Amino acid sequence: MASAEEIVLNDPHTPAPKAIEAFNQILPTIKSEIIKSRHHWDKHEPKMWARAADIADAVLVDFTIEKDLVQVRSAPTSYGTIILGKIRLPAVNDAEGEGFVHVRIHDPPNRGTEDVIFHSLWTDEGNKDADGHPRSWRAVQTAQIPLEFFNE
């Protein structure tokens, strides 16, 4: 599995047609994983999805790749391409501004986008205390949070 030290991501950019195709290939999985993550965290640490607390699941995942995939980055690996995407959640627009999720997918070599797989959502457990325990949780990012490599 790749790490931030082993890959070189290209600069953040608007998605090209191939990236849109790759994310559309697994759109139902992305939406399902957002809902699954939200339900999981709501049981353990509701602060993770707090920006979406009063939004119904169906409304939260009411987005399209063509309109709401606003930024991508990618990096080649020996086993294919890692693609990161910043997807707008139109239902989230609060005092912090628009809400986004960061998604990591993988495109194995040699088969186009038909075998693209979902890897993960970035759920940031940041601002650790002296003992290494998180003091903040964030699954819904702001526009200003950069799209960086994550391995969750």
Rank of each mutant, 00 (worst) to 15 (best):
D107E: 14
D94V: 04
S120M: 04
W122F: 09
R88M: 03
P108W: 05
R111N: 15
E96Q: 15
G126I: 00
H106M: 07
L121H: 14
A95N: 07
D107H: 06
R88H: 14
F118R: 05
G112P: 01
G126M: 02
V103G: 08
H106V: 08
L121E: 02
V92Q: 04
A91C: 07
H119P: 04
N93T: 04
V116D: 02
V103E: 15
S120V: 05
P108D: 01
V101N: 03
G112L: 09
W122R: 00
G112I: 07
H102D: 13
S120Q: 05
G126R: 04
V116P: 01
R104Y: 10
G126H: 07
W122D: 04
V101C: 06
R111T: 10
V92E: 00
F100P: 09
D115Y: 10
K128T: 11
T113R: 00
I87G: 08
V101D: 06
H102Y: 07
P109K: 15
E98Y: 14
H106P: 00
E125G: 08
V101R: 05
H119L: 02
P109T: 06
V101Q: 05
H102M: 13
I105M: 01
G99W: 06
H119D: 15
T113M: 05
V101W: 05
D94G: 11
P90I: 06
G126A: 10
P109Y: 11
P109I: 14
N110R: 10
P108C: 05
R104M: 15
R88N: 12
E96N: 14
P90R: 13
V116C: 03
N110G: 01
R88Q: 06
H102G: 06
H102W: 03
K128F: 10
P109E: 10
L89A: 04
L121Y: 14
L89E: 09
E98Q: 12
P108I: 01
W122N: 00
S120E: 07
V116A: 06
G112R: 09
F100Y: 15
A95W: 02
S120D: 10
R111E: 15
H102E: 12
N93L: 13
G99L: 13
H102A: 11
F118C: 00
I117F: 03
H102Q: 13
D124I: 00
N93K: 10
L121V: 03
E114R: 02
L89I: 14
E96D: 09
G97L: 13
G112M: 08
E98M: 10
T113W: 00
P109H: 13
V103A: 10
H119G: 06
P109W: 11
P90Q: 08
F100T: 11
V103F: 06
R104A: 13
G112A: 12
I105D: 07
V116T: 01
T123E: 15
L89W: 09
R88I: 07
V103Q: 11
F118P: 02
A91D: 13
H106E: 02
I105H: 02
T123I: 05
N127L: 07
H106N: 08
N127C: 06
L121I: 04
E98S: 12
G126D: 14
F100A: 08
E125F: 10
G99T: 11
G112H: 08
P108Q: 04
P108A: 08
T123D: 15
W122Y: 12
D107S: 14
N127I: 00
N127M: 12
I117V: 15
I105C: 03
L89D: 12
E114P: 00
I117K: 02
W122Q: 04
I105W: 04
N110K: 11
